[in-house]
């Protein structure tokens, strides 16, 4: 009987130098529903697919505004994300209070990264089971960061994490060149299309299960849900039915 002895805790290296507990935590991210993030020269956009436990329950929150200049989208254990987001809110407020400055996104990302790292090096702790996309605008412009349970943080141009997110990433990679110069509306559409790519066959994006977060150079980060996103959903997928859909499939063929 084979038993992997090296995966019981996060303080044991395998002979190959891997830490299985951390790798398993990364799997928890893949259990969460998909979230997408993109930045342009002026805007940062998050889009997320919400899930509900049953028909009569509410949907799980996927995008959390943290400060007026940024927000996060989560995939994985929502309660871990709540702990991290509370920490981020505190740090952001502390920065505003002591320096009268919106905390730089690179800094807040590094702080949660460092926090996550300690959980991978001490016995009795477990890695966070959540991945985050941190998107918004600071003094140096729009940013998008990815945070992983291992404590790895990376600045991205576009990113998708969560269940079946590979499909979304493929979409993002294919359209990567268009993002930088995209308008606010275009960027939101790209995010929604990326999100749609990762959906299971029988699923649709609706006003109930979709969240969008937008931050820009001249606009505070805001979460859009429900009726507020009707227009975006309609225009995004209306166009698709027409011209874009054809173009898309041709691209796939080539």
């Amino acid at each position: 009987m084979f038993r992997n002895n090296y995966d019981n805790d996060s303080v044991t290296f395998s002979p190959q130098g891997r830490i299985f507990q951390v790798e398993y935590a990364q799997e928890a991210v893949k259990q969460g529903s998909v979230v997408v993030g993109i930045v342009s020269k002026k805007y940062a956009v998050l889009a997320a697919l919400k899930r509900n436990a049953e028909d009569l329950s509410s949907y799980q929150k996927k995008i959390i505004p943290i400060d007026t200049h940024y927000g996060i989208a989560l995939a994985g254990l929502a309660s871990d994300a709540r702990v991290l987001s509370n920490f981020m809110k505190q740090q952001s407020l502390a920065s505003r209070l002591t320096y009268d400055r919106a905390i730089p996104l690179a800094e807040i990302t590094a702080r949660i990264g460092d926090r996550a790292q300690t959980n991978t090096q001490h016995y009795g702790k477990r890695p966070y089971g959540v991945g985050l996309l941190i998107a918004g605008v600071d003094a140096n412009g729009p940013h998008l960061f990815e945070f992983q349970p291992s404590g790895v943080t990376q600045e991205m141009l576009a990113c998708a994490i969560g269940a079946r997110s590979q499909m979304a990433r493929t979409y993002l990679e294919r359209n990567l060149d268009e993002f930088e110069g995209a308008t606010r509306e275009e960027l939101i559409k790209h995010a929604l299309r990326g999100l749609k790519e990762s959906l299971a066959q029988d699923k649709e994006l609706t006003v109930d299960n979709t969240s969008v977060g937008v931050g820009g150079m001249d606009e505070p980060f805001k979460l859009y849900e429900g009726q507020e996103i009707t227009n975006w959903l309609e225009t995004t997928f209306e166009n698709r039915e027409g011209g874009a859909e054809g173009g898309e499939s041709m691209e796939v063929d080539s």
Partner: peptide
């Protein structure tokens, strides 16, 4: 430290990056 880590390739001179200004410092 943080001005370097948030620098990207197109900003060669990190010293020009937004750091604490006089207003921030006065608050501090």
């Amino acid at each position: 430290y943080s001005s370097y880590s948030s620098a990207s390739d197109d900003t060669d001179d990190t010293s020009n990056l937004e750091s604490l200004n006089a207003k921030n410092l006065h608050t501090y």
